[in-house]
């Protein structure tokens, strides 16, 4: 743990020091906490790259979204890793590091506790879709919304960097092979997550 904290590169590749069962345990905690934060802030992680300020939903729905996002990555990228690697790899490393790589989205969900973005959303809906009620916005609302959007954007980019490094390390793939297969797999995993969430939303909500 000391080496993890003292190595600056750990910010985008902590998996040099943590993988396997420990990462899976930490990742499970991250997914659970993200679901809890999403439940209390009405923030939906409805896709691997998505975060929306949505309506109220039960806790199990937020947890289901978190698990679908993680599983979508695993069911697409793990077979790719097994096909492309030349060495013995472990599923628990991929599962654990992918779960841990969701940490930035936990931070992103915390932005949902600020009212400003939701108020700006309601204002935009009222102006452009003529739905809902008018909302009085201050300069602070706009400023905070822009700031939080930047934070969310950085968290999404950080998550992708973590996922790429997790995939590259756990599958022991070199630069080009890793980059091309990850990009293709990630796009497919994103689509899978969106489709599964949309399908499950009709069933559960």
């Amino acid at each position: 743990m000391k080496r993890l904290l003292s190595d600056r590169k750990s910010i985008y590749n902590p998996f040099k020091y943590i993988a396997g069962e420990r990462a899976l345990l930490l990742g499970a905690g991250i997914i659970l906490l993200s679901a809890l934060a999403g439940y209390y802030s009405n923030t939906w992680l409805d896709g691997i790259l998505d975060m929306h300020y949505g309506p109220e939903a039960p806790f199990h729905w937020h947890l289901a979204m978190g698990l679908i996002n993680w599983l979508s990555l695993l069911i697409v990228l793990a077979p790719l890793a097994y096909i492309l690697t030349d060495t013995k790899i472990r599923l628990v490393d991929l599962a654990g590091t992918f779960a841990m790589a969701r940490l930035p989205m936990l931070i992103a969900v915390l932005t949902g506790f600020f009212n400003a973005p939701a108020r700006v959303s309601r204002h935009i809906i009222y102006i452009y879709l003529e739905a809902g009620e008018p909302v009085e916005l201050s300069v602070m609302d706009y400023g905070l919304t822009v700031l939080l959007l930047i934070v969310v954007l950085i968290m999404i980019i950080w998550q992708v960097a973590l996922l790429f490094n997790a995939y590259k390390l756990c599958a022991n793939l070199k630069q080009n092979r890793a980059a091309i297969s990850f990009t293709a797999g990630f796009v497919i995993a994103y689509v899978v997550s969106k489709l599964l969430i949309a399908w499950l939303q009709n069933l559960l909500l």
Binding site: F15, K16, A19, N172
Partner: peptide
Amino acid sequence: LGLSYPSVRNRLD
């Protein structure tokens, strides 16, 4: 070594 399993395995490879 204070490293993760895949790090060590990759070094061995």
